[in-house]
Amino acid sequence: MSENQRRPITARRVILLLVVLAVLLVPIPTFHTPHSRDVVIDASQFEYSPPRLNINRGDTVNVTLNASDVVHGFFLDGYEIDSRVEPGISQKFTFTADRSGKFRYRCSVACGPLHPFMIGELVVGPNEPVWRASALAVVAAAAVLLGARKRRMA
C-alpha cells in the first residue's frame, strides 16, 4: 500500500474517533427536578409487580416490599441493595437513583424452580447507556461498511 492510499484512511479514522467520542461523551440534558417517590413492589413466584419501574435520575425512591406467597428477596443490580421479605411482614427501604440505566432486581432467596429467573427491571431515565450503545452499534456497522468500500476483503 502506498503513502497516498494511507492518508485518507487516517483522516477517516480521526473522524470515526471523533464520532465515537461524541456518542460516548455528549451530555444528555435533563429537565427534571428530583423528587421523592413511593413505590410498592409485590414479590410472588416468580415475578415482581410492577415488573418494570421507570423513575428519573436523582429521585429518592421509598420502596415498600411485600411477599405474597413465600419468602422472597430483592437484590437491585448496580445499587447492591439486598432485602429479604416474608409474607405478612413488609420491608421498607429508601435509595437515591443516582445512576442512569437499566438495573435488574432479582430474587435473592431461593423460592422455587424458576427462582434464578425471577427478575424485574428498574429503569432510571434518561437511559443513557442504551442510547449510547445503540448509537455506537449504528456507527460501528456504518464504519465497517464504509471503511471497506475500496478494500479487498478476501
Binding site: P129, A133, A137, A140, M153
Partner: peptide, 24 residues
Amino acid sequence: SSTAPGIQAVILLCGLIFSVRTSL
C-alpha cells in the same frame, strides 16, 4: 452487577463488527 451490562454491550458490539466484516 453494575458493570455487567457494559461488558455485555462491548461484547455485542465486537460481535457486530466481526459479523459485518464477515459479510463483507
